[in-house]
């Protein structure tokens, strides 16, 4: 088995899976019917990507791995999503900010993966980027709306930005696997992404009148499988059926 490729696919898939999960928790609870439908659409897009990545990962892994064994039967420490996407749906300001912070990265990432010399990743990226362009436009527009809407919304957005900004750096900070994948022409160049990413992010924030935290501290660990305390609760929901009724077909 190609260990690095497999791990890389988990990293790609896990980000989409955990964010998709967070969005799916909102289904039926959105601030308006129209917005509810829009958020669910994004969740569906992300789970579609998860399936593509994990079907491919299952092939790479071999044995009797399936998309579901990969999605449902790993322990917390084996999940490689970034800390940002597991942050809870505290309020709509957090939902939108988390989404925009991820979408901006996701878009830059997929632009590069569209050039990947791995045919499968390349194909998945080409399909996903259309979806993510839409997510990005959606979340960016909402960032603007809420930051410049009312005093209340501005305040809530500032709180969300302050609390979520420290989770952003991890996204574009390459670990060993990501470096190896870049060297093979499969993965993205995160150093390049990082520059563009913060240009976009900081540009938008200053344009819409929001402050990034001054201290400049960042959290990390998700990509190595060390998560926040939220993660266990996500898995107890997500894996409930597979763990309670092992080895059954659904």
């Amino acid at each position: 088995m190609q260990d690095n490729l497999y791990t890389y696919l988990l990293m790609l898939g896990d980000n989409s899976m955990i964010l998709g999960h967070r969005l799916s928790e909102l289904c039926g609870h959105g601030p308006s019917l129209e917005t509810d439908i829009a958020l669910t659409n994004m969740s569906l897009d992300l789970f579609g990507q998860v399936r593509s990545y994990f079907q491919y990962a299952a092939k790479v892994k071999g044995d009797d791995a399936t998309e579901d064994s990969i999605a449902f039967l790993r322990t917390e420490r084996k999940h490689l999503s970034s800390l940002l996407v597991e942050q809870p749906n505290t309020d709509f300001a957090h939902v939108i900010t988390r989404q925009y912070f991820f979408d901006q990265y996701h878009l830059l990432l997929l632009e590069q993966l569209c050039e990947s010399n791995d045919d499968q990743i390349n194909a998945i990226a080409k399909k996903s980027i259309k979806e993510v362009k839409y997510h990005h436009r959606f979340s960016k527009t909402w960032m603007r709306r809420l930051a410049q809407g009312t005093d209340v919304s501005h305040q809530k957005m500032q709180v969300a930005v302050t609390s979520l900004y420290p989770y952003t750096e991890e996204l574009s900070k390459a670990n060993g696997v990501e470096k190896a994948m870049l060297a093979e022409g499969i993965g993205a160049d995160l150093d390049a992404i990082k520059v563009q990413y913060y240009n976009e992010l900081d540009g938008l924030l200053s344009d819409i009148g929001l402050q990034k935290p001054e201290e400049g501290y960042f959290y990390k660990g998700g990509k190595e499988g060390i998560h926040t305390e939220h993660f266990g609760f996500i898995l107890s929901d997500f894996q409930y059926m597979q763990r309670t009724y092992p080895d059954m077909t659904w």
């Binding site: 799916s24 969740s43 399936r51 449902f72 929901d237 409930y240 009724y245």
Partner: peptide
Amino acid sequence: WISRAPSLRRKVALLAKVQ
């Protein structure tokens, strides 16, 4: 039950249905 759906296929189907 969306968050507890037992497979990815079931999850997207249920999500689409509730949507």
